[in-house]
């Protein structure tokens, strides 16, 4: 246990990932199956987490929701990190006007009231899983870009880069093979925290009805029903929220652990 954070985080996320991947096999019911005889049934051996107001099995919906949350988190952050890497390394490596233009644009994006923009975009584009992945990714790359830029600024003057240049390596090769791999550490930590942020954002959007649309289950949109079942069916409020909490805790643990590994 040299790195308890990393161990705990990996364990949590590992279990979640397995649940998400195996959801079709392990979920006891079809997550969309409506059962008129079992409306708002409390947790029982038959329905481990109870049922919702349409009689759908909450445990099954939660397992399928894990797929949605994890894939939105991973893909949104994948998009953001990729954009950040490309944009940041161009700015850091070439300096001068490309740097000025890119960093100016980054400043503009950082002043964006992001949540407002995401809401507006999702509402006008009709909310869907893919739109959410794209918009979270497109509005979340600035941190990664700044990190990679500052790392490259200090790396590019080092001897091994000059040696590579003297050997006649192309710019692209220097960036991709030498600069990015050496600068990737902080970006990874940032990305891990970003996954947690994206999952939280998705759950908030879905809760507002502007995220994943029913009948597809997501932890956020299960919680919509908790407003109308307040005081009647605690399980609808408690389980999805706990799932979000544990997931975010897991990613934050991994990020903390990675920080120790790198730093």
């Amino acid at each position: 246990m040299r790195n308890p954070y990393l161990t705990a985080g990996t364990l949590i996320i590992g279990v979640l990932a397995i649940t998400a991947i195996l959801a079709p096999l392990i979920s006891p019911y079809d997550p969309a199956r409506i059962d008129g005889k079992n409306l708002l049934a409390p947790p029982s051996p038959a329905h481990l987490m109870g049922t919702d107001s349409l009689g759908r099995d909450l445990a099954s919906r939660m397992a399928w929701g894990a797929r949605i949350s994890l894939s939105i988190g991973l893909i949104a952050v994948g998009i953001a990190t990729l954009i950040g890497l490309v944009v940041g390394s161009i700015a850091g490596f070439y300096g001068r006007w490309p740097d000025a233009v890119i960093m100016r644009f980054t400043d503009i994006m950082l002043c964006f009231p992001t949540f407002f923009l995401i809401l507006a975009v999702v509402a006008v584009l009709e909310p869907s899983i893919y739109n959410i992945m794209a918009i979270i990714g497109l509005t979340g790359w600035m941190g990664a870009a700044r990190l990679i830029r500052s790392e490259i600024l200090s790396l590019k003057e080092r001897e091994f880069i000059q040696a590579e240049r003297a050997l006649g390596a192309s710019d692209a090769r220097i960036i991709v093979r030498h600069l990015v791999p050496n600068a990737i550490g902080p970006v990874l930590v940032n990305a891990t925290l970003g996954i947690a942020g994206a999952i939280l954002l998705e759950s908030g959007l879905s809760f507002l009805g502007l995220g994943v649309q029913p009948p597809t289950a997501s932890w956020g949109n299960i919680l919509i029903e908790s407003k109308s079942t307040l005081g009647v069916a605690w399980w609808i409020t408690v389980f999805p929220g706990l799932a979000i909490l544990v997931t975010i805790l897991g990613f934050n643990f991994i990020a903390e652990g990675l920080k120790k590994v790198i730093g």
């Binding site: 939280l200 809760f207 919680l223 908790s226 005081g231 409020t237 975010i248 934050n252």
Partner: peptide, 21 residues
């Protein structure tokens, strides 16, 4: 760590359930 991970809108729902109802 826990507070960072709590979705605050969920906390609001829990508190409404407990304190208000």
């Amino acid at each position: 760590f826990v507070l960072f991970a709590v979705p605050t809108f969920w906390l609001a729902l829990l508190l409404m359930q407990l304190v208000c109802i």
